[in-house]
Amino acid sequence: MAYLELKNVNKTYGEGKSATEVLTDINLTIEEGEFVAIVGFTGSGKTTLVNLINGLLKPTSGEVLFKGEPVVDTSHERGVIFQNYSLLPWLSVGQNVAMAVKVAFPNEKKAFIKERVAQYVEMVNLSPAINKRPKELSGGMRQRVAVARALAMNPEMIIMDEPLGALDALTRGNLQDEILKIWSKDKRTALLITNDVDEGIYMADRIIPLRPGPRATLGPEFKIDIERPRDKTELNDNPVYKKTRNAIIEYLMGIGEERKAISKKLYELPDLAPKSFVA
């Protein structure tokens, strides 16, 4: 039995004439302990897909199964790292994490919660900033708080919606390594949504492109057969890396061309002349 399974999932926003089909016919299986990346253009419905999996949205038709059970609501088993951090601005770093820990471990004592908060804040190297508000932090630090908050709940599966999209290359690299470290330590299942092919190849076991919306659907999967731990600098010379990367980019470019071709459609204009036109 697959760990997470999406069967013929469709998602439509709105009704009647104004309805827009965002996702059509999504089929996806993720096994336990796997790291899967979904790569797609911006605006192709990636966030909608994430919200279907974490339970914030319900599919218009089709099924989302988590450990064989249909997903009807959000769950502590699936931790989410949002694209825009979504930290509560009136709480400090520690309080933001503590809020998650408290709901994930409702029966634990205060000391346990305090210790766990400190542990996860330390893990993302933010101990000096534990009493600061999100406003006082840089983008990278905020994203690290969001990571700590999601992981402190001890989820079985981590769902990441372009978590590093807004960060600079250096911070991005560091956080990629941190996420990989956490993932490999407890062998959790991870789903990464990204628009960066290199990031996907570096981190994931499989890459699945999402064809652009409306009516977005998943493309063929690409397996990344590169041994872990992967080294970023060596990766550039790895023939498997080069081959996979070229294949994915070619595929995505192909979609881009297709999109352009669609827009080249000729519109026939009516043959009209102004009333008082004298030739």
Binding site: L56, S75, V80, F82, S86, L88, P89, L91
Partner: peptide, 27 residues
Amino acid sequence: KDYINVAKVLKLGPLQKVFKVILPSSL
């Protein structure tokens, strides 16, 4: 909406949602 999503993902109860998320953000 982001804060509401956080409340949903953390599975806060209705009272907690009002007092810990909605009220502080509308203060």
